[in-house]
Design a binder for these strands. Structure first.
Lengths: 159, 159
DNA sequence: ATTGATAATGAAAATCGTTTTCAATAAGGA
DNA sequence: TCCTTATTGAAAACGATTTTCATTATCAAT
C-alpha cells in the first residue's frame, strides 16, 4: 500500500508471475525504491535505502532480487570500475531517457548524458546488423562508457 | 635476455624511467608475456603463464604490475562481467588493431571484432567534442561492448 | 665495481563485494 | 484454511584483489 504511486496497477506483477516468480514484500519494496530514487546505486545503497522503511529486509535478499530483476531485463547492472556493481531501472512506465555515462577516473563521479543518441542509434543499428551477418552473434545489449576527467578534476591537475 | 624479441630496444624502459619506476625482472617478464600471448587474460592467467618461466614471481606482483601498466596506459583493463578483470596490451610497436568485444552472456566467450571502426571513430570524435563543450568533461578513453548470444548458444536455446 | 637509499618483491593475512547454506517463513493455488 | 514450495535472513563461505611487512634488488652516486 505504501508502494503504489498511481502509475499503473503494479505493472510488474504480471512479469513476475509470467516468469514463475512470486510477488513478495521485498521485491515490491526494492522495485518501488528504484523507481523513485537516484540512478547508479550500489547493492548496499539500495539496502540502506530500503532498510529505513523495511528493516527486516536483508542484504542477501537485495542481491538476489537485483539478480532476478537484471535477468528479467527490468534493471541494468553496470560496472564503473570501483569494485561494486551499480544498478538502475531500465525504464518505468513513464519512460526514462536512454542515456550513457561519463565516468571521472579521478573522483569516480558519474555524469549521465543523453546527447548524440540519435547518431549513436544509427551507428549501432548498422553495427549490430553487420555483426550478426559476419559472426552470427545475436546482440541483445550494448554498453558505451566514456572515461576521463570531470571539470573539477581537470582544474585540480588530474589523476 | 630471453625477453627480447628484436622489435625495439626495450622501448618501454624509457616510459618506466620517465614515470620514476624501476625496470625489474617481473615487469619485463610480464610485458614480454603480454606482447606474445593471447588477449583478454585474467591476472591468474598471466600469473600462470609467467610462472612457468619465472616461478619466483608471485601473484601479488602480477596485480601490482598490471595496475602500474594500466595507469601508464600500456595495457587496458576490462570487465566482462565474470568477476575477474581481463587485461590486454594497448598496442605493441608492431601496432595491434583497435578492436572491441562481443561477449556471449551464456558461455562468456569473447569475440574480437574490428569492423565498423571507421564509422565508430567518426561518431566518437563528434561525441567527444560535443561532450567536452557541454559538460567540460575531458574524455581520455572509451569502452564499447556488445552483449548477446554466440552462434553455439543460440542453437542451444540461449541462456 | 662498491655503496647506500629506497623502490620493488613475495608470502601471508586482511579486505570486501558477492554467494552459498540452511532452517524458518510466507505466497498463493487447491 | 491447508499445503506445497519459493523465498527469506543470518551466518558462513567464497574469491578476486589489496595490504602488511620483512627481505631483496635496482640504480644513482661514488
Amino acid at each position: 500500500m505504501p508502494m503504489s504511486r498511481g502509475f499503473g496497477p503494479m505493472w510488474w506483477h504480471g512479469r513476475f508471475r509470467g516468469c514463475g516468480y512470486r510477488v513478495t514484500v521485498p521485491r515490491e519494496a526494492i522495485l518501488d525504491m528504484l523507481s523513485k530514487s537516484d540512478k547508479h546505486l550500489s547493492a548496499e545503497d539500495i539496502y540502506m535505502k530500503v532498510h529505513t522503511r523495511y528493516p527486516a529486509i536483508g542484504l542477501t535478499t537485495i542481491y538476489r532480487t537485483l539478480d532476478i530483476l537484471a535477468n528479467m531485463g527490468l534493471i541494468f547492472k553496470f560496472d564503473f570500475g570501483d569494485g561494486r556493481a551499480r544498478y538502475e531501472l531500465v525504464e518505468g512506465p513513464k519512460g526514462k531517457m536512454h542515456h550513457h555515462h561519463l565516468i571521472c577516473t579521478s573522483c569516480n563521479r558519474i555524469i549521465d548524458y543523453t546527447d548524440f543518441i540519435d547518431d549513436e542509434v544509427e551507428l549501432l543499428k548498422r553495427t549490430e546488423k553487420g555483426l550478426l551477418k559476419k559472426y552470427n552473434f545475436k546482440i541483445t545489449n550494448h554498453l558505451i562508457q566514456f572515461y576521463g576527467l570531470c571539470e573539477k578534476c581537470q582544474k585540480k591537475g588530474g589523476d
